[in-house]
Simulated scan of single mutants.
Amino acid sequence: MPRRGPTLPPQNLERFNTAPADEAHRTLLTCLHSPSWAHRVTAHRPYPDLPALLAAADEAAYDLGPADLARALAHESLPALPEGTYSAAHTALSAAHAAYESRFGHVFVICLDDIPADEVLDRVLAAIRSRLANDPEEERQVAAEELRRLARGRLVRATRGRHAGAANPSVPL
């Protein structure tokens, strides 16, 4: 059986397709804080289905220039740890984040969609440690890919009427 991509109730996609451009743009900014990305995705409406919307969002994310990437990274927050994480883990993670930000000049971003809560801390620490070995250009590419993945997951949640970003509620579609 062929694997199907994410689905979405037709009325949600219709609402996104017909929303005023400024409303769609604001919603998209909760997924990825890049005005050029949000403008491009908004401008190409209507989308026939969610996979087409996600493909357009991916394509726009792949085309982010250095300034767009820097702006998007500046609006990201650190990944949240699961509730009940012990203080030593917070200390280790804070030190790792500080080292990362010192080396690369921006917050560490990672997409944790579909990662079980009990694996989040290990994944984040392992990823930071691994990515600290990257040169700045390589890390820029990795961070851009993580931003693309974050935006994709947030866009799916926003079009389903759920909270899009870690710190920003989505504008209802």
Rank of each mutant, 00 (worst) to 15 (best):
G105L: 08
H33F: 12
L64N: 00
A167M: 12
L78N: 13
A43C: 08
V156D: 01
T91G: 11
R149G: 05
P35F: 03
N168G: 09
L112N: 07
V156R: 10
A43K: 04
D63H: 14
A24K: 01
H163V: 09
L121R: 11
A96Y: 08
A74Q: 02
R40E: 15
A164K: 01
N12K: 14
A89P: 02
R148F: 08
H75I: 04
V41W: 01
L28H: 04
N12V: 12
G105P: 02
R26L: 11
P35V: 00
I110G: 02
R15G: 06
D114M: 13
E59H: 15
S170G: 12
R45E: 01
A158V: 00
V124F: 00
R154L: 01
A43N: 08
P20A: 10
P10V: 04
L50I: 01
R4P: 11
S87E: 14
H97C: 11
R160C: 10
R160L: 13
P136A: 07
P48G: 12
D63N: 14
V156T: 10
I110Q: 05
V109P: 00
S170W: 05
A144M: 01
L132D: 00
A166P: 06
S130M: 11
A57H: 06
R123D: 06
F16K: 07
R149A: 15
R149C: 09
L132Q: 01
R4Y: 12
S170P: 09
R4H: 15
Y47L: 03
H163F: 13
A95Q: 13
A117N: 08
A24P: 03
L54Y: 05
V142P: 01
D68W: 04
P6L: 06
E14H: 14
A61T: 08
A43G: 13
T18S: 15
A80K: 15
A126T: 13
L150V: 10
A19Y: 06
R162M: 12
V41L: 00
P6A: 06
P79M: 10
T85K: 04
S87D: 14
L155C: 12
S87F: 07
E137T: 11
G84A: 01
A126K: 11
A67V: 12
R4A: 14
L121G: 06
